[in-house]
């Protein structure tokens, strides 16, 4: 049967009401457009770049009322031209994940659990620790053979990480580390 019944129905007389009904039925896309929710309606776009490997694929965040409704490859990007790998494509899930750490947590010596603390308390603890360690482990000078050199450092503070940070964060991270006096400033360069 090469003529579908719908065509047959169009070819023959009558069926007006049915035809109208049928046409409505077969254009669900239009119905959806008119009544359904399209997730990018009213979205503001922000561009960013992926945070996995170093390809630097461009991404577009579509934000509606402060909510990330869609994140996908930036079609206007010179590296990925709209494409993303499986990891990049999954990144929308990280923003609203209930597994994110949402408040500073503290684990006391010997404790078997985390406790939530305030930012102030956390950073106060950290700053005091930096000062204590720095002051108690300061190496002003060091002897090599017969020569005593001024070295002005501590070897007791380690800074680790940066490959997941922005350049600006890395820059301040390194600057802060060296100003504290440590040379243990390292990141994932070898991973």
């Amino acid at each position: 049967m090469s003529i579908s019944r719908r065509n047959w129905l169009k070819l023959t007389a009558g069926g007006g009401a049915g035809l109208a009904l049928a046409e409505l039925g077969f254009s669900a896309a239009k119905v959806q457009a008119a009544t359904g929710h399209l997730k990018l309606t009213g979205a503001k776009q922000f561009t960013t770049a992926c945070n996995f490997c170093s390809c630097g694929c461009g991404m577009v965040c579509n934000v509606v009322d402060g909510k990330l409704v869609n994140l996908e490859g930036d079609p206007d990007h010179v590296i990925n031209q709209g494409a993303l790998c499986s990891k990049g494509a999954a990144m929308q899930a990280t923003h609203e994940s209930d597994r994110r750490v949402k408040a500073p947590m503290y684990r006391a010596p010997g404790s078997d659990r985390w406790q939530e603390i305030s930012w102030d308390e956390a950073l106060e603890k950290l700053a005091r620790k930096v000062k204590d360690v720095r002051d108690s482990t300061w190496i002003a000078t060091e002897k090599d053979g017969d020569v005593e050199y001024p070295v002005n450092r501590t070897d007791a503070i380690g800074f680790l990480g940066g490959a997941q940070n922005t350049n600006e964060e890395c820059y301040l991270w390194n600057k802060m580390g060296r100003l504290f006096g440590t040379n243990f400033v390292e990141h994932q360069a070898r991973l």
Binding site: G56, H95, V101, A103, R107, G110, W114, A122, T166, N167
Partner: peptide, 27 residues
Amino acid sequence: PKSIQTEVLLLPAAYFMEKEGTISGSG
């Protein structure tokens, strides 16, 4: 855990779509 005397602070960080700045890829 009882035998580990290390104090630990876990500070919640923002992810890349939640902050601004530059990154430099391989190229």
